[in-house]
Structures are given as C-alpha cells and as structure tokens.
Amino acid sequence: MFLQDLEARLMAVDVRRVMIFRSVARVGSISAAARELGWTQPAVSQHLGALEREVGTPLLLRGPRGVSLTEAGRLLLARAEVVAGQLHMADEELAAVAQVRRGNVRLAAYPSALATLVPRAMAGLQRRYPEVDVKLVDAEPPEALALLERGDVDLALVFGYEPQADLGLVLRSRPVGTEPVRLIVPRRSRYARGRLTVADLAGEPWIVGCVRCRAHLVDLCHQAGFEPIERHSTDDYVVRQNLVAAGLGVTLLPDAALTAFRHPDVVVRRSEAFGRRSTSIVYRDGADLVPASAAFMAELLAAHRPLAAGAPTPA
C-alpha cells in the first residue's frame, strides 16, 4: 500500500527536482552532483528537501561518505531514468524541427561493429546531415542494453545467436542483418584444409570470447557431443587471432571481426555448421520518431548491405 501511494505522489512532483535527485543518486554525493550541475551545494540540498516534502518520505540517507538511497529513493530513481530518456527524445524532436535535423545521437555498439559497420553509417550520416552529431560508446550487448535502459544512450547495436529475447514494454528492436561465423585455425594446423565437422574439434583447446560468443560455442560443441576445452578467454578479436596464429588454440569469429582485422598466419574455415550471428538496433519506444535517431538507424541499415556483400573470402 505504501508503494502504491508513493507511486501516485510521484506523478505530481517537480520534474526538475527529479532530475536533480537523479544526478545526486548516480554520483552518490550532493557536492559532486552540485559541481556536475554547476550549482551550489545548498541549492541542490534545498531542492532535494523540497522533493522529499513533495513525496512525503525520505529519498536519501546522508552520511560522511556521501548518500545512499532509501527504498522510496530506488523507486524514484527507476522512474527518473525513464523520464530522462523521454526528455532527451523530446529535446531531439524539438531541435530537429527548429534547426533542420540538427541534434545528437548516442550509440552503444560492440567492437567489431565499431570497426566496420558504424564508421560507414557515420560517414553516410555526415554527408546527408552534417549538423547531426554522433557520440559512440564501446559496449558488448548486455552493457549496451543496460545503458539504453538507463537513458545514457539513444540506440544500442547488439548481436545474438538466438532469437531476440523479450525486450519488455519500453524497448524495441529492428533487425539489421546476419553474418556467418567462421572457424579460425593456425595456418599449419591439420584442420586448415579438407572436410571438417564440429565433432572433429573435440580435442582442441578453444579461445573463447564474450558471454554470448562463448554460449554459442558451447551450444555447438554440445550438439556435436563433447565439452569444449576452454584454454583462453578474451573479447578482443585481434588477440584471439594472434593466439590462434601462435598455435595456442582455435576460435570462432564472425565475418565483421575478420573484415576489421585478418591475421596473415591463420586460416579461416567456412561451414554453415558454425552458425550465424544476427545484428539488431535496439531503441526506446518512440526513438524511431526522433529525426536524428531515425536518420542514423537508416544509415546503419544501409551500411550493412555492402559489408555483407563484401565479406572476406575464407582461405
């Protein structure tokens, strides 16, 4: 009952004070938030006090090392993150109308996309809309989705090997395309040529990647009837190829990683048995209506087509 009453009161609070509270909650200190906002500490404290009077309950616990959130504070922060995302989208819509597509787009994307797909898309956007500025964040899919949910980015470019999981009521997804996954072996490996199945690799040490990539590998090996020997682990596709070239194991990589970097001492084996990776743009509901974000999404979709057509030819 308390939480229901609190949620009802939150609907009527001052949005500006909620954003001040969000800044304090995220940095963990009233003084640090005041510096970030360019305000004085007493002014921030006054707004926090007024906000707590509005909601009728304490939101922060003050201490010598900063502040911590009460149960009510955690509830308000969750709502504040949604409000911040909506306010940013509203600001972008108004800026686009008033200034002819001028605005900002914040994108979180995984490394191989940042090295291939994203630069092409940014170049296309710059040619068409030079007043739109793109900010990039390097993030694997779970981190990118978390940034999106918090309102820290506008778009998240993510990949997966399974059908897209339910994104809930707030997030939406648009497929970009798929790419094959390749087996990477040392140039002098006995697996460098000839017929090859996943089962043939049962005794080989593997160099595994991120959480999603590892899950894909483990699933393939289980289907082939064995448990993979996980010798090394790194998200860096350049490091993984160097480890393979040194004869320290084998690995799986998607075409995008091989387009970004191809080690001369590895062999890329092609087979549908290694699966495919899909890429999607995830965004908050309504972001596709913001002109700057919509324009960048279109460029990302367009940039994928020549990359897919020009995938590296396996040795």
Rank of each mutant, 00 (worst) to 15 (best):
H47K: 14
R305S: 11
T259I: 08
E81C: 08
A121T: 02
P205T: 07
R150I: 04
R187L: 09
G66C: 10
E149P: 02
D133M: 08
L69F: 06
Q164P: 11
V97Q: 14
V181P: 01
R284Q: 11
R26C: 08
A90I: 04
T313D: 14
A165E: 15
W39R: 11
R270W: 06
V181H: 06
E204W: 00
P228S: 12
L60Q: 02
R9Q: 12
V185H: 09
E149V: 11
V267S: 06
V27E: 11
D219L: 15
A224V: 12
S271Q: 11
R277H: 06
A109I: 03
P119K: 01
Q41E: 12
D255M: 05
D5R: 14
I207E: 02
S31N: 09
L196Q: 07
G209Q: 01
G225V: 07
E227F: 13
C213N: 12
L253G: 06
R193P: 03
A34Q: 01
L61F: 04
P163Y: 05
V181I: 09
V18A: 05
R284K: 07
T197D: 11
E81D: 14
R284M: 01
R240M: 02
L300R: 11
S293A: 15
A302R: 14
G103Q: 02
A303H: 10
L94E: 14
A156N: 05
L76D: 01
R65F: 01
L75A: 12
S173C: 15
Y191Q: 05
R127F: 00
T57L: 10
E131W: 13
S293Y: 07
H232K: 07
A257F: 04
P254N: 13
V198Y: 10
A298K: 14
G247K: 05
